[in-house]
């Protein structure tokens, strides 16, 4: 699409955001939630693209559902994503706004960090995952986030709204070795490195079956942990109520390096641990999966 055609879309997108921000400031979270329902319904009526992009996941998660049920499933998923975005704006714009959260496995997480070997914290684009960034600030060591530049812009947006400094350092995946050297150095200093374990954007990878079909997942996290001796902790967040969320430590393991010839097999095995947690997560929270593209062809 040409930049001339994109400009009106960008304008409409910005207008939509600003209307929601205004509603949040005037009527608060509930006002924005109410507005969300007709907006999402209208969006689903007129956009074929969103149905297609959600169907990649929904048809695998609910293979038994017919077209009507899938339409309703899509509504529930897009609506829950809208609520997460509203919460993000609400937290950023309203003074004193806060969510009640619990971190299941908090003590274990701090125990792992206390060992001084660093910690690879694997997260995914599920639930209100950005809340996780706000919640993981309680460590006594620095927290770093290995992320792609475009994702970085989103994260900035979240903390810019709060007018607070970012509570973590960004390690950009652009550049020499995709941020692996900085991440290694951070782990060697005993720091935490958070990595999105689901979306593949280049670099080392492993193919693992997820919801019945093979998907290419990024695998750098496991190699980082194996080389430095750091544990891998899988932490996934879920929205559990209007002002409630839960973050759970789903799995912890120590990848170890074996023979060079078996390296890819090892990586597939470690990636499988992450994918198992991810499958358990979508069984429990089927409407909090926020990868709106053909995830199985990434």
């Amino acid at each position: 699409m040409s930049s001339n055609r994109r400009a009106p879309l960008r304008f409409l997108e910005a207008l939509g955001h600003n209307i929601f921000y205004a509603i949040l400031l005037i009527f608060g979270q509930i006002g924005a939630y109410l507005l969300l329902k007709p907006v999402i319904f209208t969006y689903l009526l007129f956009s074929r693209k969103i149905h297609r992009n959600v169907a990649y996941y929904m048809e695998r998660r609910f293979p038994e559902h017919g077209p009507v049920q899938l339409w309703l499933d899509t509504y529930r998923l897009v609506h829950s994503f809208g609520q997460v975005l509203v919460d993000r704006g609400w937290l950023g714009l309203r003074r004193g706004a806060c969510l009640d959260g619990e971190l299941i496995g908090n003590d274990e997480l701090h125990e792992l960090v206390g060992k001084g070997k660093g910690l690879v914290l694997l997260v995914a684009h599920v639930g209100n995952w950005q809340t996780a960034f706000a919640h993981i600030c309680g460590f006594k060591v620095s927290v770093n986030s290995l992320m792609h530049y475009e994702q970085e812009a989103v994260a900035k947006h979240y903390f810019d709204l709060r007018k607070e400094p970012m509570p973590f350092n960004i390690i950009n995946t652009d550049g020499f070795m995709g941020g692996m050297i900085e991440s290694t150095a951070a782990l060697q200093r005993g720091e935490v490195v958070t990595i999105m374990g689901d979306r593949y954007a280049g670099g080392p990878s492993a193919e693992v079956t997820f919801l019945g079909d093979k998907v290419r997942f990024p695998s750098a996290a496991y190699s980082l942990a194996a080389a430095t001796g750091a544990p891998v902790a899988i932490m996934l967040a879920a929205k559990t109520g209007r002002r409630n969320y839960t973050m759970r430590l789903w799995d912890v393991f120590y990848p170890e390096t074996g023979d060079r010839q078996n390296r890819q097999e090892d990586v597939v095995r470690w990636t499988g641990r992450f994918v198992k947690s991810l499958e358990e997560y979508v069984m429990e929270y089927p409407y909090q999966w926020y990868n709106f593209f053909d995830f199985w062809r990434q």
Binding site: G178, M180, I181, T184, Q188, P204, A220, A227
Partner: peptide, 11 residues
């Protein structure tokens, strides 16, 4: 060598 080797090399 590849990016995974780079990590090991740093260590």
């Amino acid at each position: 060598l590849d990016s995974l080797d780079a990590v090991e090399l740093v260590v």
